[in-house]
């Protein structure tokens, strides 16, 4: 089996969310729903000297991710009907005919990737734009990124990067995500609690 995955060059990302916008548009997602998340993380603080001047050791960085099409997908393990499955390219997707919309996948995924579309009655999620991949195109998010920070390809063809081990993502050992990241200088390691999500309302 081929395993596709994402590569994210965090050193180029400006948090513009064009990846997310392009995805929402192409997949015609309802307001309030998204397959891709752009987390803004910040930490550090400010210090005022006796003369009134300010210095800061604060930092801010973004991480953009969608479904990681994990080697060991939590969503698949909890799916009671087998609707959630991996295809021949390693892409995790929903067999909508089998899905009963129970929402277990949504609860199990540590990346908040699948969710239940109540109107459709089944789970929905990033499918790696597999129709476009079949036509030799790139996923919408990849093609949209003005900074060329995203790639999607069989993982052995992706540039070298660390396996999704950056805060606020969960420990990659949990599900073995197929997201490889070139970290930016401001990045903090998985599990670091000195930083906080600075755009909570935008990633709900």
């Amino acid at each position: 089996m081929t395993q596709y995955g994402f590569y994210f060059d965090a050193t180029r990302c400006t948090g513009c969310k064009t990846c997310e916008a392009a995805c929402r548009d192409y997949h015609n997602l309802d307001l309030g729903t998204t397959f891709r998340h752009v987390y803004e993380l910040e930490g550090g603080g400010w210090n005022q000297a006796e003369d009134g001047t300010w210095t800061t050791d604060s930092f801010t960085y973004y991480t953009s991710f969608a479904c990681q099409h994990c080697d060991d997908p939590a969503c698949m393990h909890v799916c009671p009907t087998g609707a959630m499955h991996k295809d021949e390219n390693g892409i995790v997707s929903v067999d909508t005919g089998r899905c009963i919309g129970c929402g277990y996948c949504h609860m199990a995924c540590p990346y908040d990737a699948p969710f239940v579309d109540r109107a459709k009655g089944h789970s929905v999620k990033c499918d790696g734009c597999k129709d476009r991949i079949a036509e030799g195109k790139q996923p919408m998010c990849v093609e949209a990124c003005s900074m060329r920070a995203l790639q999607f390809a069989p993982v052995d063809q992706l540039p070298e990067g660390e396996r999704a081990a950056v805060a606020p993502l969960p420990d990659p050992e949990l599900t073995k995500p197929n997201l490889y990241i070139k970290n930016c200088a401001a990045a903090h390691a998985v599990g670091d609690t000195s930083c906080r999500v600075a755009n909570e309302a935008e990633v709900k």
Binding site: T18, A21, A22, R24, D25, M140, A144, C145, M147, R148
Partner: peptide, 29 residues
């Protein structure tokens, strides 16, 4: 139905493509 942007030119970092940002990509709504 949906928007793609500039797919001509070079998609490499440093190449020229007038790729629209989130504002232009959201023009359908």
């Amino acid at each position: 139905a949906y928007v793609e942007s500039d797919t001509a030119g070079s998609s490499e970092f440093g190449g020229v493509q007038a790729r629209a940002c989130l504002r232009g990509r959201s023009i359908r709504r």
